[in-house]
Simulated scan of single mutants.
Amino acid sequence: MTTTPHPRPGRAWIITPGLRPSRFEAAQASGAGVALVDLEDSVALQDKQAARTAAQAFFGRPDAPCTLGVRMNAPTTLEGARDLVALTGYTAKPDLILVPKTESARDIELVASVLDTDGYTPDLWALIESPRAFDKLPSIMRAPRLGGVIFGSADYAATVNCGLSWQALLYARSALVNSATAAGIHAIDAPTWDLNDLNALRHEAEAAKELGFYGKGAVHPRQAAVINDTFAPSEQEIAHARAIVAAGHKSGNGVTSVDGQMIGTPFFTAAQALVREVDG
């Protein structure tokens, strides 16, 4: 069965602490396609309510240049329940809700049941960051309101007691991309945690793109431009895709070759998808 992907998200996703209003404008102006205000890991327990109050200002900008969202606390926790109550009272509401610690479709359904109204149905994304979540991926992907998934590498590595290297997390990344693609939704890779090594960021972003991720998280505004540049199709990639599409038309979508490479139906499908994305 062929699935139709949800609307495309941004390539770069940036998250900023809910208790740092001074950083809100920089996050929104970073060039990221999605900017999230965080109520979860970056906020200490005793500061949760203050963060909920401060975070309202994140959504008060009517001309924001990107999709605005919030990472709430896990919906099955007391703080998550308090987040949902607070969000229902926001005058300006987030376009997107990132649901952390997602381990079942019910987590997504719970958030939707509280927040959805006739006039408001936010995009709901799951943060996949535990071995249990990976065991339950097929059922999580069947949640009707799920818009996409993000890899939570730090929590996953801490639980598994493995490193944060690319090789250590390759299985998890591959499994997430595979399940997301089967469900017709996009997957966003975890951030690169080094704030200053932009070469390392580019290298990891290139690897994530090659693996099938649609974009990547950022933890500093300077990272957004590198992510956008890496995930955007290059002129060479676009030209090659157009050549494949043209060759497919000429051959009646039969097996042929382009630049010495044998190509057939899977190559035509991928090239057509890229050309459609570029041409809008």
Results as ranks from 00 to 15, higher is better:
130 S>Y: 03
97 I>E: 09
64 A>D: 09
247 A>P: 11
17 P>T: 02
98 L>I: 06
60 G>Q: 02
133 A>G: 07
96 L>T: 13
162 C>P: 00
129 E>C: 00
194 D>T: 05
65 P>I: 11
127 L>I: 08
77 T>L: 04
107 D>M: 09
27 A>G: 06
267 F>E: 10
8 R>P: 08
260 G>P: 07
60 G>D: 11
135 D>A: 15
20 R>D: 10
227 I>H: 08
69 G>R: 02
122 P>D: 08
50 A>F: 09
94 P>S: 10
68 L>E: 12
199 N>I: 10
61 R>H: 11
157 A>V: 00
218 A>N: 09
231 F>N: 01
87 L>N: 12
208 A>P: 10
163 G>A: 01
219 V>W: 03
102 T>P: 08
9 P>D: 05
41 D>N: 06
218 A>Q: 05
157 A>N: 01
233 P>T: 01
209 K>T: 00
19 L>E: 12
168 A>W: 00
207 A>R: 15
196 N>F: 03
56 Q>Y: 12
201 L>F: 11
101 K>I: 00
173 R>L: 00
66 C>R: 04
121 T>G: 01
198 L>S: 06
167 Q>D: 11
19 L>H: 10
258 V>H: 07
215 G>S: 12
198 L>E: 12
265 T>R: 13
247 A>G: 11
256 T>Q: 08
92 A>G: 05
86 A>I: 02
72 M>F: 14
253 N>L: 10
97 I>N: 11
157 A>F: 00
147 G>F: 03
277 E>W: 13
166 W>P: 04
9 P>K: 02
114 V>L: 04
112 A>G: 15
200 A>I: 05
209 K>F: 00
16 T>M: 08
101 K>F: 02
201 L>E: 10
234 S>E: 08
148 G>L: 08
84 L>I: 09
2 T>Y: 14
17 P>K: 04
90 Y>F: 15
24 F>I: 06
161 N>V: 00
48 K>E: 00
170 L>Y: 15
199 N>R: 09
250 K>D: 14
273 A>P: 08
88 T>L: 15
83 D>C: 09
218 A>K: 07
127 L>W: 03
262 M>A: 12
172 A>H: 04
239 A>F: 03
224 A>Y: 05
112 A>L: 07
138 P>M: 02
145 R>Q: 15
158 A>P: 00
51 A>F: 13
4 T>N: 14
50 A>R: 15
275 V>S: 05
16 T>F: 10
123 D>L: 10
172 A>N: 06
257 S>H: 13
20 R>Q: 11
105 A>E: 12
216 K>G: 03
13 W>R: 06
54 A>W: 08
222 R>I: 11
252 G>V: 14
162 C>S: 13
166 W>F: 14
231 F>I: 04
211 L>R: 11
82 R>T: 09
146 L>N: 03
241 A>N: 15
273 A>E: 14
116 D>H: 14
